[in-house]
Design a binder for these strands. Structure first.
Length: 572
RNA sequence: CGGGGUGUAGCGCAGCCUGGUAGCGCACUGCGUUCGGGACGCAGGUGUCGGAGGUUCAAAUCCUCUCACCCCGACCA
């Protein structure tokens, strides 16, 4: 491609609204332009990146035995009413009416449509298993889109759905998809981690998220550096730390005027947060309140708490006023001593002694609180988020926490949708049975932003070769003045292109600084410069995007040598 | 949805308080000089001042309404 024939839309200045680095760079480099809140045009340069990501995803999905189809973005309400999600999905589902006042939605996902296809087309166990996928534009009316295409309302997703006669078959395809995703992110040149994820309301045996590692990621991932254990912090198990020490201090009621938070309590008493216990009151399943205790410096995990049989579903906090009327104290002064209801202690709390907790009276706390002595043994459960330094659940060391951007998710749906949408087939014995189902998503547009978060410097983007809009920038210097420079650059352009390299030649008659700055900003991983100076010595220059300096290459060797460099670092 | 903020040329912004010919930098067009890290000079084009209504002799500026976009929060003790 020639810059003179392309639409390069780079900016020197960053648009004011962009917060994160990938968003800023994508705007400056002219990869995307915003049309409306959370809705973006993919400019020619950005589309090249997107297409390269799609190509790899498609190749690997096909290789893993999935079959591509394309389903409509606009979907009739009837299907969604049938699955129950017309009402469940909430305002994220963009609804509209056609000219006949019939209800439709823009598909945020395609379980309903694909299930409708499969229940019409698949009748026999002989047709199973089946894995169907598409790469398609979705719309989710997010509360707050942000970070450019990282969390956009309209985005491109690869979504796959598999159908099975039995759970074992589902398990096999699930593994195949897990491996497929691993290959995809590896080929894309990304640092990533597969992590065990919460299966949420659907339940089922398996769900993994694939995260691109980046400090700006919205998700926290706990992992063990000594093993392959990794889980979303929401899900990672917080183990019991050890036996409880014997009570040493006497229970004492302390006046703590105005103290509401753990930070205030620690400041007031001059103790570390790890000596305190904070309490949260939830509505209980049997109507009695449930008091959950976690250590002062720990964080309650509501999805874990929701799994307790004592807790009412869906989880509801006791409102501040009802807490006050029932316990005579506001939130911030609650504690286990004398609490009328169910008391649940986190494993860590269960191992604490002589701690500080609320006294169930405003402006008072107890010090020297001990389980068993001062209040009955509580229910012990894992109800907190893990923190760095916690023991890894596989016993192989201490957990560390990194941040990640979720770019893929594999999920065993089991029969949630086959039940709702009556996905049945006839087995070997002629009996009608429900299909097992899995779903597998990749955020294609989000991958581009995530890759930039992970790969950039002060000059701009550094694309991994596999998704770079072009693999090599060819920059002639002074081509307008020097016919030899021009002729050499043109010859190299022809030869390198013929050698299978995706070359962008900067044939504008710009000053060198402009050309270099543009090629670096848009993240082209390799660069060859042709200049009068080098040509006198029969040389051109090669420089990798991450290299500190250019190195000379003789003209005769140029094509071969450059090709080996372009192909060297990553596999595509 | 709650709170805060911003809308003025393609991009970044000033002007608004105190009403009186709409500006600056970058970008863009032409000419010339320049040419290995975002050049310089001269000349030039570019605006429903987000929209509607109101006050006024006069509104980018004051008032009312409205729309769009951005940020923060929305599971906390």
């Amino acid at each position: 491609m020639r810059v003179s024939q392309f639409l390069l839309s780079t900016h020197r200045e960053t648009p004011a609204e962009a917060e994160v680095v990938s968003h800023r760079l994508m705007l400056r480099a002219g990869l995307i332009r915003q049309l409306a809140r959370g809705i973006y045009t993919w400019m020619p340069l950005g589309l090249r990146v997107l297409r390269k990501v799609e190509r790899i995803v498609r190749e690997e999905m096909n290789a893993a035995g999935a079959i591509e189809l394309e389903m409509p973005a606009v979907q009739p309400a009837e299907l969604w009413q049938e699955s129950g999600r017309w009402d469940e999905f909430g305002p994220e589902l963009l609804r509209l009416k056609d000219r006949h006042q019939r209800d439709f939605c823009i598909g945020p996902t395609h379980e309903e449509v694909v299930s409708d296809i499969v229940r019409q087309e698949v009748k026999s166990y002989r047709q199973l298993p089946l894995n169907l996928y598409q790469i398609q534009t979705k719309f989710r009316d997010e509360i707050r889109p942000r970070f450019g295409v990282m969390r956009a309302r309209e985005f491109v997703m690869k979504d796959a759905y598999s159908f099975h006669a039995d759970p074992e078959s589902l398990e096999r395809t699930y593994r195949a998809m897990f491996d497929c995703y691993t290959r995809i992110f590896t080929r894309l040149g990304l640092k990533f981690r597969a992590v065990a994820a919460d299966t949420g309301a659907i339940g089922g045996t398996g769900s993994h998220e694939f995260h691109v590692l980046a400090d700006s990621g919205e998700d926290a991932i706990a992992y063990c550096p000594n093993s392959d254990y990794a889980a979303n912090v929401e899900l990672a198990e917080a183990l019991a730390p050890g036996p409880r020490a014997k009570p040493a201090a006497a229970l004492a009621r302390v006046h703590t005027p105005g103290v509401k938070t753990i930070a205030e309590l620690c400041a007031f008493l001059g103790i570390p947060a790890a000596r305190t216990v904070k309490a949260v009151v939830l509505e209980g399943a049997d109507g009695r309140p449930v008091l959950l205790m976690v250590r002062g410096d720990h964080e309650l995990n509501l999805s874990k708490a929701a799994k307790l049989e004592q807790v009412k579903k869906p989880v509801a906090f006791s409102a501040g006023e009802s807490i006050r009327s029932r316990f005579g104290a506001g939130p911030g002064s609650l504690g286990p001593v004398g609490f009328k209801g169910v008391v649940v202690a986190d494993h860590t709390v269960a191992a604490m002694s002589d701690f500080v907790a609320g006294a169930n009276q405003d402006d008072y706390h107890y010090t020297g609180v001990n389980i068993g002595r001062d209040f009955p043994e509580p229910v012990v459960a894992d109800v907190r988020n893990v923190v760095a330094g916690d023991a890894s659940p596989d016993g192989k060391g201490q957990l560390e926490i990194v941040r990640g951007i979720e770019v893929g998710h594999v999920f065993q749906l089991r029969d949630k949708y086959s039940k709702a949408l009556n996905l049945s087939f006839l087995d070997e014995t002629g009996k009608s049975r429900l299909m097992e189902m899995g779903c597998y998503g990749i955020g294609v547009t989000r991958i581009v932003a995530a890759a930039i978060e992970q790969n950039h410097d002060e000059r701009g983007i550094i694309f991994p070769r596999a998704m770079a809009p072009f693999e090599l920038a060819l920059v002639p210097i002074g081509a307008g003045k020097n016919a030899q420079v021009r002729a050499t650059a043109e010859a190299l352009y022809t030869d390198l292109t013929a050698a299978g390299i995706d070359v962008l030649i900067d044939d504008r008659d710009e000053r060198p600084g402009v050309a270099f700055a543009d090629m670096e900003l848009i993240g082209i991983p390799h660069r060859v410069v042709v200049g009068e100076r080098g040509l006198k010595a029969g040389q051109v220059e090669y420089q990798g995007r991450r290299d500190p300096k250019a190195q000379p290459v003789t003209l005769q060797d140029a094509v071969q040598s450059v090709k080996s460099k372009v192909c060297a670092d990553e596999f595509v």
